[in-house]
Simulated scan of single mutants.
Amino acid sequence: MSTGVSTTLLAYLPSPDRGVWYLGPIPLRAYALCIIAGIIVAVYWGERRFVARGGEPGTVLDIAVFAVPFGLVGGRLYHVATDWPTYFGPGGNPVDAVKIWQGGLGIWGAIALGAVGAWIGCRRRGVPLPFFADAVAPGIVVAQAIGRLGNYFNQELYGGPTTLPWGLEIYNRVDPATGAPDPLGGVALDPTPIAIVHPTFAYELIWNLLVAATIVWADRRFRLGHGRAFALYVAGYTLGRFFIELMRTDPATRVFGDIRINVVVAAAVFVGALAYLVIVRKPREILAAPAPATSGEQASADAGTTDDDQPVSGGARDRAP
């Protein structure tokens, strides 16, 4: 950028000088560490909420064994599919499509395929998927907030130029050995910023935390059940993502002329989540352990009823959350 940028070092936010550290030959990537930290928070908080609502301890972790890998694969597939020229277009490297540590996880694919993994895990544990989804909803959106810190270390997903005090300084990162440009794995040797931009990843981080707080409040106030807490998460997240996506300047697939594809997806998913919140009015489920079979009868089948005022099966103790 011009020298004007270097002379306006006011209260702008500095970017990290690097996103990768080395422990001997082992790279420690901030993006990967943030993703892992987010998963741990989501599982831990989801477990606490699941048990408080009547679920059996250990169930969330068991289901996460299926949901997390499915979610990571789905997130990467969505990212690659909607940004395929980067990997398969002119000058692209198809091998980079599997380098998840370099960033690039589409939340839409992560939720979609992660839900498939969660469904498999729920089936194995006899837990209704909507009940599980309600329990983990706020933890998921907090995990997304933590994951956005990885974008900060990677110097990615920011907006256009700004003179606001919270503008983010972007540095030129290079390979220290060769001096070649290396935005992800390099180091910023020159502390002079090349741009001051909107930290849109930080906007999303803050919004996600507000969504998590809203879910917790609404869940306590209205005793949301049958997937409504999860629908509130989806509606809240997509509402913020719609406007934040409009501010981003990173390359993205365009549809309907010149609209970023994630803007369209956010709008469509928001409408679907809002419709679910309006249509579904069932009271919160109460998990009940299947009654023991007697005289050749399978009483556990009776515990599986899903009438509004009846418990649903899930291998959990019979108590209200």
Rank of each mutant, 00 (worst) to 15 (best):
Y31W: 14
L232G: 06
F242H: 12
A42H: 10
I244G: 05
A67S: 15
A118P: 12
C34R: 11
A195P: 05
G139S: 00
D258H: 00
F243D: 02
G315Q: 04
E285K: 09
A143V: 05
Y78R: 04
V264K: 05
F132M: 05
P251K: 14
G109Y: 13
E169I: 07
R173S: 07
F242M: 00
G185F: 10
G103K: 10
Y276P: 00
G314N: 04
F70E: 08
G38W: 07
A235F: 00
I35P: 08
Q102K: 13
A320Q: 13
I261C: 02
G106A: 15
W84T: 02
A81W: 01
R319D: 11
S300I: 01
A97H: 03
D307L: 15
T3K: 14
G240M: 03
A202P: 00
T192A: 15
I107T: 13
A229F: 04
G117A: 09
A180W: 01
A81M: 12
A195G: 09
G106C: 06
N262V: 09
L113Y: 14
V211E: 11
I286W: 03
V80T: 08
G159N: 02
V141L: 05
I39W: 05
A52R: 03
I36T: 12
G236H: 11
L239D: 03
G109E: 05
A320Y: 13
R223C: 04
G89E: 14
G225K: 00
Q155V: 12
L33C: 13
L287T: 02
I244C: 13
T162M: 11
C34H: 05
D17V: 11
V255Q: 04
A118R: 06
L277D: 08
T306D: 15
A291Y: 10
L149Y: 01
A213S: 08
L246S: 15
L246W: 00
A110S: 10
A135G: 03
A115S: 15
Q310E: 12
D17Q: 15
A143R: 14
Q102S: 11
P311Y: 05
L28E: 10
V41S: 00
G257V: 04
E204W: 04
A266D: 07
Q310L: 08
G296H: 13
G150M: 07
V136C: 11
E297C: 13
Q155M: 07
V95H: 03
V255A: 10
L61V: 12
R124K: 15
G4V: 08
W21T: 09
I39H: 06
K282A: 14
P183R: 07
L189E: 04
V271D: 08
E156Q: 03
V116I: 15
G92H: 14
V65P: 10
